[in-house]
């Protein structure tokens, strides 16, 4: 088994708001091995982005880390200062944002924005060499290098997305976090880009975290899948395993809410209700108000996140199988 590159231990992060504390990430533990691709799935508002930006420590001012550790390649990032973090950002961990379309500064040429990242981390690089590198990155992500000196507004949505991916690869990071990288694009472009991302990841051996609310999309590109609900990691297993033997009713619900590419055709059923307001998350298991299997204990006590065999982890009082 390859060594682990990222190890999150009991990580908890809250947002302070006028209305109270939002428990956006609650006691999450997770380990990712080098070269692995992990999918993070959950409905909107379940804390996926919050967890992602916690790893890069790109938190807004009102965010408070309540506890836990994030070990990246052996270093705990949680206590690091902003200046110390800068050496990790982009050089070691880069990110493709949810709003990837707007991640490029409108007033600079795309090539210059990519070179800026390389210059920041590699220092005094030769300009023409850097340009050559940008051209290679462009080819890598399926863009014609002749577009590299254009401005972002001259690109189509799909091109911008590819440029952002090229930028994320610029400093050859060990880990790339892709937060809903294709949500804003149309379905066909989405599909192409995802497939290319996966090919790139396999070719370069980069570790990836894919984030999406669509479990079908994630299943295509990830080795392992983590399911987030209301700030908690509720299930974590190999992609195959989670598809064929989901333990948490929420996972099963997510799967029936999206057309499956792997499984047989079946009727789509969405989970009734919405994720809870994280200002006052439900007691016990946070999913219990929406769970058709909920019993007394689900309301009262939080289930433990435990191993159901061969690394299939879940937290549920009434597991579907097992």
């Amino acid at each position: 088994m390859a060594e682990s590159i990222l190890k999150i231990e009991n990580f908890t992060m809250h947002y302070m708001t006028k209305a109270g504390e939002v428990s956006a990430v609650d006691n999450v533990s997770l380990e990712i091995r080098k070269g692995e691709s992990l999918g993070l799935v959950g409905e909107s508002g379940c804390g996926k982005t919050s967890l992602a930006i916690s790893i890069m420590k790109l938190l807004p001012e009102n965010a408070v880390i309540k506890g836990g550790h994030i070990y990246f390649d052996g270093t705990d990032l949680v206590p690091l200062s902003e200046d110390e973090m800068r050496r990790f950002r982009w050089r070691r961990i880069s990110m493709i944002f949810q709003a990837a379309m707007n991640s490029l500064n409108p007033v600079y040429r795309v090539s210059d924005q990519i070179i800026e990242a390389m210059e920041t981390h590699f220092g005094n690089i030769d300009y023409s060499e850097a340009r050559e590198k940008v051209a290679n990155l462009f080819r890598l992500v399926g863009l014609d290098p002749k577009f590299m000196d254009q401005y972002p507004h001259e690109y189509s949505g799909g091109m911008r997305q590819r440029a952002v991916i090229a930028m994320a690869l610029a400093c050859e990071p060990d880990l790339i976090i892709a937060d809903e990288p294709t949500t804003a694009l149309d379905v066909i472009v989405q599909d192409n880009i995802l497939r290319e991302l996966k090919a790139l990841q396999e070719k370069l051996g980069t570790t990836m975290i894919y984030i999406s609310h669509d479990i079908a999309v994630i299943a295509e590109v990830s080795h392992r899948i983590g399911i987030m609900y209301a700030g908690k990691l509720v299930e974590l297993a190999d992609a195959e395993e989670i598809f064929h033997h989901p333990i948490h009713p929420y996972t099963a619900g997510l799967m029936s809410a999206f057309p499956s590419i792997i499984g047989p055709k079946r009727e789509l059923v969405t989970i009734p209700g919405e994720p809870p307001d994280l200002l006052n998350p439900p007691s016990g298991c946070r999913f219990h108000p929406r769970c058709q299997y909920a019993t007394e204990i689900c309301r009262e006590k939080e289930p433990e996140f435990k191993d159901y065999g061969s690394g299939h982890m879940a937290s549920c009082w009434n597991p579907l199988e097992g």
Binding site: R89, T120, H121
Partner: peptide, 22 residues
Amino acid sequence: REDFVMAARAKGLPDGVIRDKH
């Protein structure tokens, strides 16, 4: 509040560069 400012932070640019250049 723009997204590219967050991206600039993620790129590991120094604070002054984010403020002035971006």
